[in-house]
Every structure is written in structure tokens, then in C-alpha cells.
Amino acid sequence: MSSAGRVPQGLRRVYLNVRPERLGVLIGEGGKTLRDLENRTQTIVSVDSLNSSVVIEAATPETPIEMVLRASDFIKAIDAGFSPERALRLLDEDMVLIIINLKEVIGDSQSHLYRVKARVIGEEGKVRTNIEQLTGTYISVYDDLVAIIGDYEGAYLAREAIEMLIQGREHSTVYRFLNKKVRELKRKRLTEYWKKDFSTKEVKS
């Protein structure tokens, strides 16, 4: 039997650290969230509550490497503040997770961190909601992280907008940028759809 698509021996196990307060969210009531993740990804997930660590293993030799990596992304998303319901979107093959570590970008100043997070969230969460709606993504601002779940183009567009806010750009400037990019993205997708539809009709004729 071919080994293509299986987890290489060196990648059959992934180790992660999870914030202690997020372990309960990962496990779920009666272990339901963890069992659901294992069933969906064909993995075995072991949680060490004392050390706040997690080990992900392929449940069988046939478990695809993509499943191990998606389980890893799910757990990273939980650690970054997402609900299990939103994190489960990462099990879809066209979804990606992007995490921005704010301390790596702006340093350890708590006052600066607070200001940057406030800029990304906005009053009553309006800025975050606007970016989510424009890019079709989910955004979590938790501890020193900003995390994004979405399709490739939407997630990277949201990241670019958030990086502009971190750099101090005006919200109005960021919204103009997003609206322009979203229009360009819609035109691109529409053009691709037309080309695909036209090619299909040519083949049928």
C-alpha cells in the first residue's frame, strides 16, 4: 500500500502548549469537544493539565498528515480565544489560521498592548466586526494574540488590515483599503467563475 498522504514517521506527533484557562474549553463538557475533534481528524489528543500541554498523534497509520495539522490548528485557535464552534471551521480544507503575537510586534509594554488591542477591537467591538464582515473571517483578540480564521484570501486581507491598525493607521484609511481590496477580490472571483463556466460550456458543446 502506498504511503502517500500518510503522516511521515517524524511528523506523527505534535506537541503544543495551551494556556491553562483554555484547557477546559478544549476538553469540553464531559470531554465532548476533545472526542469530537479526535473523531473528525482521526487523531488521539492527550492533555496534560499539570503542564498545560497537549500531544496530538495520528490514530492510525492511514491518518493523513493534513488531519494532524488541522487538529493542531484547531487547538491553537482555542488557545487564541476562539470558541470550539468557530475553531471547527479550520477542519475545512480551504480554511486557514493566522496568529499575530502582539508582543513580538510591539514589545512588552502593557499600556501599548492595551492601546493596540483597543484599536483592533474598537468601541463595542465595532472595528473587529467590520473587518470580519468585509473579509468573511472570524477574529479573536485574546491576551497578547490576534487570531484570524477564514479562507486564504480573506484571512490574509484581514491580517493586512490589522497590521495597519497596529502601525497606527487611521480606521478610515483601513476601511478604504479594505473596501478597495474587497471589490478587487469580488471582481477576480467573478472573472474566474465566468472563465470556468465558459470552459465548461465549451467542453459540453
Score class of each variant (00 low, 15 high):
105 V>H: 02
57 E>C: 02
103 K>G: 02
119 R>I: 08
180 K>L: 10
151 D>Y: 09
66 E>W: 09
58 A>P: 02
76 K>H: 11
73 D>M: 10
63 T>R: 02
200 T>M: 01
148 I>E: 01
91 L>P: 05
85 E>C: 05
64 P>W: 09
175 Y>F: 14
106 I>T: 02
159 R>Q: 15
77 A>S: 11
49 S>P: 09
177 F>R: 08
203 V>C: 01
28 G>H: 07
110 Q>V: 14
182 V>T: 05
126 K>S: 14
97 L>S: 06
90 L>A: 11
191 T>P: 00
75 I>L: 09
32 K>M: 03
143 D>T: 13
174 V>L: 02
102 L>S: 03
67 M>L: 13
91 L>K: 04
165 L>C: 06
194 W>C: 01
147 A>N: 07
114 Y>P: 00
86 R>V: 15
116 V>A: 05
72 S>E: 03
117 K>H: 04
69 L>K: 08
164 M>S: 14
116 V>D: 04
99 I>L: 03
80 A>K: 03
38 E>W: 04
45 V>D: 02
137 T>W: 06
83 S>N: 11
24 G>L: 09
31 G>E: 13
53 S>C: 08
192 E>A: 13
147 A>C: 06
66 E>T: 15
186 K>Y: 04
42 Q>T: 15
33 T>R: 02
196 K>I: 12
19 R>W: 10
147 A>H: 05
8 P>T: 06
104 E>H: 11
24 G>K: 11
98 I>N: 03
